[in-house]
Design a protein around this nucleic acid. Structure first.
Length: 211
DNA sequence: ACATTAATTGTGT
DNA sequence: ACACAATTAATGT
């Protein structure tokens, strides 16, 4: 498919036509594969990603070595944290890993200041992205701070299932534990609990959501 | 088909 | 958290 069509399909209506044309002209389409690291800690951020297809998970590194999943980004979305880094020409605070195959349109960051003042639709896009993330992060903080591991795990499974459009989550307990910054044993135990409660079915390398 | 090994999952302390 | 048992998948012969 052509670059123009790819971008239009997702972002037509989101941005005013004039801006859409400029975006199309300056974007670089970048395909990626599952588990590709798209951005890593400390890397300078030179482009803003507009996700076209697939899904990306945004991870934060903990003080004592350990990762934590902040949120997923999906088609038609961008990464608020990256934007923040981008506008201040900072190095990346996060790591972005592809959850599944997909494509992003990369926009060179030299345009964005100008667009911010010039295009209402760009402002709206950025602000709504910010506010959505903000509340999502508040939610995570609540769960992390109050150690509601069972709920976090449950949310994670639901999100994962929704994003992959499948009732089956193909991950090991270890992988899940890493993303939630917990231990494998804890995850195994909680999953077993849920299975007993009839909410899920456990298999090797996969978990099926029943509800 | 069988044995061996590695990876994943389950449980008790 | 740690140790170990049990189960399943992968590989070689």
């Amino acid at each position: 498919m052509q670059k123009t069509d790819l971008i239009k399909e997702i972002y037509e209506g989101v941005f005013e036509d004039e801006l859409l044309e400029i975006i199309i002209a300056s974007a670089i389409i970048m395909p990626f594969k599952e588990d590709d690291i798209l951005i890593d800690f400390g890397q300078p951020v030179t482009h803003i990603p507009l996700l076209i297809s697939g899904a990306i998970k945004i991870m934060r590194e903990d003080f004592d070595m350990g990762e934590l999943l902040l949120y997923f980004i999906e088609s038609g979305d961008t990464c608020a944290v990256t934007l923040e880094c981008c506008m201040r020409s900072r190095k990346s605070e996060i790591r972005a890993i592809a959850e599944m195959d997909g494509m992003v349109a990369m926009i060179p960051n030299e345009h964005i200041d100008e667009w911010m003042g010039k295009y209402k639709s760009w402002q709206n896009f950025i602000f709504s992205s910010y506010s959505r993330r903000f509340y999502e992060l508040l939610n995570i903080i609540d769960h992390v701070a109050f150690m509601h591991m069972d709920q976090r795990l449950y949310n994670y499974l639901r999100e994962s299932s929704r994003i992959n459009e499948s009732k089956i989550v193909n991950k090991t307990h270890q992988e899940i534990a890493n993303e939630l910054n917990s231990s494998r044993v804890v995850v195994s135990r909680l999953l077993k609990e849920m299975e007993r409660g009839g909410e899920i079915k456990l298999n090797r390398n996969s978990i099926e959501l029943l509800t």
